[in-house]
Every structure is written in structure tokens, then in C-alpha cells.
């Protein structure tokens, strides 16, 4: 599920700005995971969040294509 949850958001928008893939958007003053399929699991949102509100998971929400494996 990539970026998994946001708990205790203070609405500062740091995560929205620091997500390279535009996964997070603001909704009624709080950050919401708007486009989880585009999450690249880089953790920048979590690392920029001043109140440590973001939880990550290593699983992707869409099938992953690899060259072999």
C-alpha cells in the first residue's frame, strides 16, 4: 500500500510539497493520500513531516514489472 497512513496531520503541507510524484493532496486542511498508485516509496514525505505523522509500507498498490525474477 506504499504510503500507508497519515495520523496526527497538522496541515502544514510539507509532505504535499516534498512528494516528487504528487501522491499527497490537501483536503479540508489535512493531507490525504490521493494517488497511492504513483508512490515510489522514497519516504521523503515521512522524512519532511514535522510531526512524524506518516507511516510507510514497502508494498506497492499496483502490479510491479521487473526484468526477471
Amino acid at each position: 500500500m506504499t504510503i500507508k497512513s497519515i495520523n496526527g496531520c497538522i496541515g502544514c503541507e510539507e509532505c504535499v510539497k516534498s512528494c516528487p510524484c504528487d501522491v499527497i493532496r490537501m483536503e479540508r486542511g489535512k493531507a490525504v493520500i490521493a494517488y497511492p498508485a504513483d508512490c515510489q516509496i522514497c519516504h521523503l514525505c515521512r522524512m519532511y513531516c514535522p510531526v512524524d505523522a506518516i507511516e510507510m509500507a514497502p508494498e506497492k498498490s499496483i502490479p510491479v514489472i521487473v526484468p526477471w525474477g
Binding site: 497538522i10 496541515g11 502544514c12 522524512m47 510531526v51
Partner: peptide, 22 residues
């Protein structure tokens, strides 16, 4: 841990005056 430094986080947090909760 890595990521935002505590003081930067603190300043960002307590200056977020647009947020009623803060």
C-alpha cells in the same frame, strides 16, 4: 533518525498558524 532536523520540525510545527489545531 534521518530526515528533518528536530529544530526545523519544531519551527515548522509551531509556526503553522493557519491550522486551528496548532
Amino acid at each position: 533518525e534521518g530526515g528533518i532536523r528536530p529544530w526545523d520540525a519544531f519551527v515548522t510545527m509551531i509556526t503553522d498558524w493557519g491550522n486551528l489545531g496548532i
